[in-house]
Design a protein around this nucleic acid. Structure first.
Lengths: 205, 205
DNA sequence: ACATTCGTGAGAGTCAGCTCTCACGAATGG
DNA sequence: CCATTCGTGAGAGCTGACTCTCACGAATGT
């Protein structure tokens, strides 16, 4: 007499939590592998690779975008790891450059998944997740050294600007529309990001 | 014995050029109207509104993106018209601001079409048209006053950066991911664009 | 006036994103 | 060890982006 609706994905403490976790993990692993191999990441493909029915895949991930998001997040290093190279550097410009380069390169390596995510996301803006997006963590971490020294409003605006530039969309604009090759696209994103940062750091102009 | 394949869309000088032009125009007009009304712009919808079969629509436009692109282009003012407000202004920062604001506002008004275009385009980068994209015309026009005074390489980099920022993708990043409202999104795009321009104008630093 | 051309419509078909229903069957609790 | 639970598979259904085939019929040239 309880709710019979599908709640399989709920990680609650239900009796079959292990089974659920196993299934969920299998789906994520399959998606990650497809991404890594540069293959098309579609729900039918992931389900097949995970030896799970498509229906089950949708039970755990309401849509492709959420699956891709979580699969990518699982593969991504934490902001701290990604910026390890500049861990000791306090110059925000250099840190932002590292963040931009890291994101751009990662996007280019996982192009298929990144493109699929944009496509799946842009048409359903309502269920774009709340703020903890990958790029925002990176940006925050890169700007940490100036979080206090910089004017709050200026910092907020800089973060907004950087979230536009340090993005998969930016990379694809450069490669697809301007037809830059991978290397130049990365360089373009880095230069744009550093330019924004430098400008934001100048005394109130 | 000639080629029997569909070549209906070829604007050549064929015998039935008028009929073809009429059909093509009807499809474009239908698409434009759907866009203006903020309705969903899908091939079936456009075909229905144009009183044409879906098959015919595809004969004239190989995919949704090409239709949307041309329909938008038809509705867009020329760069000169869009920037008429700053026609007499030579300050590139102010001109870029106007360009950014114009594009952002236009995108927000035609959100549906803009989103559909991004979705249709990001998954098929190969047939993204060559450079004459809307935003590039705007940017070139805005930067015209400094086309000669600025260092060539710096100018090129500025254009690349601006093409990332003065874009529908940028607007949607701000509204969807950062959840800014329309007004703040426009402001964000404008500030990012002006910041990039200001920085590019500084003497070699 | 006639034959050819060719723009067009209709409709079947494929694939992906989803949604929903139904029933099987293994894990679980008593 | 039996009854309930519930994770899962199978499959139908719907929409949109396309692709392809086939045949109708109006425009065209002779």
């Amino acid at each position: 007499m309880q709710q019979r609706s599908d709640q399989a994905s709920q990680p609650g403490t239900g009796g079959r939590a292990n089974q659920r976790l196993r299934t969920r993990t299998a789906i994520l692993r399959a998606a990650s592998e497809l991404m890594r191999d540069g293959r098309d990441v579609t729900m039918p493909e992931v389900a097949r690779a995970a030896l799970v029915s498509e229906a089950t895949a949708y039970r755990y991930f309401p849509n492709l975008a959420s699956l891709l998001r979580e699969a990518m997040a699982g593969q991504w290093p934490t902001p701290a790891e990604a910026l390890a190279r500049v861990a000791d550097v306090t110059d925000p410009v250099e840190r932002v450059a590292a963040a931009a380069e890291h994101l751009a390169r990662t996007v280019l390596v996982n192009q298929g998944a990144a493109r699929a995510m944009i496509a799946a996301t842009v048409t359903r803006p309502e269920d774009v997740p709340a703020r903890p997006a990958l790029r925002l963590g990176l940006i925050d971490h890169a700007l940490a050294p100036v979080a206090d020294t910089l004017d709050a409003a200026a910092l907020e605006q800089l973060k907004r600007s950087l979230s536009v530039v340090i993005s998969a969309e930016a990379v694809f604009t450069l490669t697809d529309l301007l037809r830059l090759d991978a290397q130049e696209a990365v360089a373009g994103v880095v230069r744009a990001a550093t330019a924004l940062t430098r400008e934001a750091l100048r005394p109130t102009s």
